[in-house]
Design a protein around this nucleic acid. Structure first.
Length: 639
RNA sequence: GCCCUUGUAGCUCAGCUGGUAGAGCAAUUGAUUUGUAAUCAAUAGGUCCGCGGUUCGAAUCCGUGCGGGGGCACCA
């Protein structure tokens, strides 16, 4: 006689055991039509699960995340079913739900093509139309293993073998012919999936995510509660493609890549202007925050990298250079050993701490070819790197200062939404556990004091210390990991850094590694995508174009342009023999923030007519006033 | 690095099943001197990614290398 408690606290009493579907019917007819799955005392169950005892039940529809998830999960199953019907001999492996959709990994010799995807989609649609029923069975472990081995599903058999002995093995049947080992829960029938899904891409994926294993074929799909949500999603993807920094970088003449140096950027004039503006801005901010800028060699003796521990852990990813006298040098993949050598120059006292050394250091890392991606993952990049040498009791306050600086800088660049990821000791590391305990505790304290939202990434720290990663959210809701802050009790000791403490004894300083943008290259990529190339005025690589209406006004246009440059704002005059409409179109497409039109009217009144990007209003302003206005626009909000 | 896919003019792309390449924009030249998103015309521009093979003949088919793209793995 179960009494069922609903989320609103209401109790429903039944005279005998009931299924979820019956509970939903009792609540309301419309709910029973929309119900997809339920939770029983917090545990997700199929709607045909029979409830015998008193419990709390919640029914989920496609409006709930749980409902959407089960739709995606069922779509993955139906896809696997369609694939095995169309391509006999294909083995199934796993098919989980992911953000925005699902995938399923298959083992099959022949590659799936895009035409195959269309065929599979069609077959899925047919299965959904047939509305095949779902049925759950519990199998004996041995029976399941032998069965899947017998029918040639060796991956499934392997999965079952790895499931703990005490766990129940459920097999879900979809219709009479197809079934899959699965934890569930699932929908009552295939028709409940709806048709708001689309198979999006095929790719390779290693069995169990390990590159030592064989490669499977993964088919990705996206799945939604209704057609509108699917269309919205597809539109979001399209919008993101329009913002692709590789496309915009080419269109806007910011940078390019060439075969001769894969993963290294050729910065063009405009891209480099942007790069320099960011660096100059950082110089101002860092100077105010007590940093001292230095510059250290790009090429350093291999012995130093051996001593620091980099050679052992990352040697395979380091560029090296052999000199004519057969010495091996490494091209720096990081700035830290160099900065410790800067610290080591001259005797340091506790009065020098905290000592904040910064460098816009260009580093080279031999990234695997498949990892390269525009500006976002490159083999040569510039870090806005700094190392703070301090005493143990300064760690937390220094970490908080770094966090404040990062937040201020992100805000200036238009990112208000920042979260932290705290990562602790990895398996492969240097230094003993006692030191790690100390480092982790001090960093975590700073994380907590920052009052920012944070998550913990177990075992993801650097090999020399725990770290925080700063993740910002862009204009279209994507997260990007940029800044980093790491506590390091190891490297300074390895490279013999010491300072003289109050009591006259030599001590090893703690070192904090931090980068704010991280990689300038990557950050510019993110900026391009965030702003879709329409940068805020103060970092825009070319801020103004002066357009004379005809040859008669060229001299005035030149005069205006040179006055603009005198107040520190970039400007060119467009003297090409094209008409005004043409020039407006060209420079608007190039995303120039301000176009200044000069004709008879402007010459007579010593003024300019302004056309702002994305506006077709005309705004006439006296040149003097304009120069003042535009100077005020030429800086971020914190300066 | 691995799987799939792709590489034609500065850019975007066309070129069916093999017969040594074409458009638009950009560039150059000339005409037009223009008031807020493409003025008109002419000219020039290509080792069809590299190397090898099949073939009477290869941008096209095959092999291989390099680069790009989508994932996987990696990311100090």
């Amino acid at each position: 006689m179960p009494i069922i408690t609903l989320p609103d606290g209401k109790n429903l009493e039944f005279s005998k055991e009931v299924t979820g579907l019956e509970v939903a019917k009792k609540i309301s007819k419309s709910l029973s039509k929309q119900a997809l799955i339920m939770s029983v005392d917090g545990e997700l169950k199929d709607l045909y699960f029979s409830i015998k005892q008193n419990c709390k039940v919640k029914i989920f529809t496609s409006k709930d995340p749980e409902g959407l998830e089960v739709i995606r999960h069922d779509t993955a199953h139906i896809m696997a079913m369609a694939v095995q019907e169309l391509y006999p001999g294909t083995q199934v492996t796993i098919g989980p739900v992911i953000e925005n959709g699902f995938y399923y990994d298959f083992a099959r010799k022949e590659p799936f093509t895009n035409e195959d995807l269309n065929k599979i989609e069609k077959r899925m649609s047919e299965i959904i139309d047939k509305d095949v029923k779902t049925r759950r069975e519990v199998w004996e472990r041995e029976k399941a293993i032998n069965h899947f081995k017998k029918i040639g599903e060796k991956y499934k058999a392997e999965i079952i073998e790895s499931i703990p002995e005490n766990e129940e093995l459920s097999i879900y049947h979809h219709g009479d012919t197809w079934y899959d080992l699965c934890r569930g829960p699932h929908l009552l029938s295939s028709g409940m999936i709806g048709k708001a899904f689309k198979l999006t891409k095929v790719s390779g994926a290693y069995w169990r995510g390990d590159s030592k294993n064989e490669m499977l074929q993964r088919i990705y799909g996206t799945g939604w509660a209704n057609q509108k949500d699917l269309n919205d999603y597809l539109n979001r993807i399209e919008e993101a493609e329009k913002r692709d920094h590789r496309k915009l970088g080419k269109e806007m003449n910011l940078f390019h890549f060439r075969e001769e140096s894969p993963g290294s950027v050729f910065w063009l004039e405009k891209g480099w202007a942007l790069f320099q503006k960011l660096i100059n801005y950082m110089r101002v901010k860092q100077d105010a925050a007590g940093y001292r800028e230095v510059n250290t060699p790009e090429v350093l003796d291999r012995l130093l990298w051996e001593k620091s521990g980099h050679w052992e852990k990352y040697g395979g990813n380091m560029y090296t250079s052999e000199t004519p006298d057969e010495k091996v040098f490494a091209i720096k993949p990081m700035n830290c050993p160099g900065h410790i050598q800067v610290f080591n120059q001259g005797l340091k006292s506790y009065r020098d701490l905290p000592l904040r050394i910064t460098e816009f250091g260009k580093v080279h890392r031999y990234e695997p070819s498949g990892a390269l991606h525009g500006l976002l993952r490159v083999r040569a990049f510039t870090q806005d790197d700094a190392h703070i040498f301090c005493s143990e009791d300064q760690i937390t306050s220094e970490c908080l200062k770094v966090t404040d600086l990062i937040l201020e800088i992100y805000k200036d660049l238009g990112f208000d939404n920042v979260i932290l990821k705290y990562a602790d000791r990895p398996e492969v590391r240097v230094g003993d556990d006692e030191i790690w305990d100390k480092a982790e505790a001090s960093l975590l304290e700073a994380v907590k004091e920052s009052k920012l939202e944070y998550s913990i990434n177990k075992g993801e720290g650097a090999f020399y210390g725990p770290k925080i990663e700063f993740v910002l959210r862009d204009a279209i809701g994507r997260d990007w990991q940029c800044g980093t802050l790491q506590v390091d009790f190891n490297l300074p000791g390895r490279l013999d850094a010491t300072y003289v403490d109050k009591d006259g004894a030599k001590k090893v300083p703690v070192m904090l590694h931090r980068a704010l943008f991280g990689s300038l290259e990557r950050f510019i990529g993110i900026l391009i995508e965030n702003y879709a190339g329409k940068f805020p005025f103060w970092i825009s690589p070319l801020q103004t174009v002066v357009i004379p209406i005809s040859e008669d006004f060229e001299d005035y246009a030149k005069e205006v342009s040179s006055k603009i440059k005198k107040v520190g704002i970039s400007s060119i005059v467009d003297l090409k023999k094209h008409n005004l409409n043409y020039k407006i179109r060209e420079h608007s497409l190039a995303k120039i923030p301000l176009l200044l039109i000069c004709g008879k009217k402007e010459v007579d009144t010593n003024s300019v007519t302004i056309r702002r990007l994305d506006s077709n209003k005309q705004e006439n302003m006296e040149l003097k006033t304009f120069l003042k206005t535009v100077s005020a626009m030429n800086k971020p909000s914190s300066i």
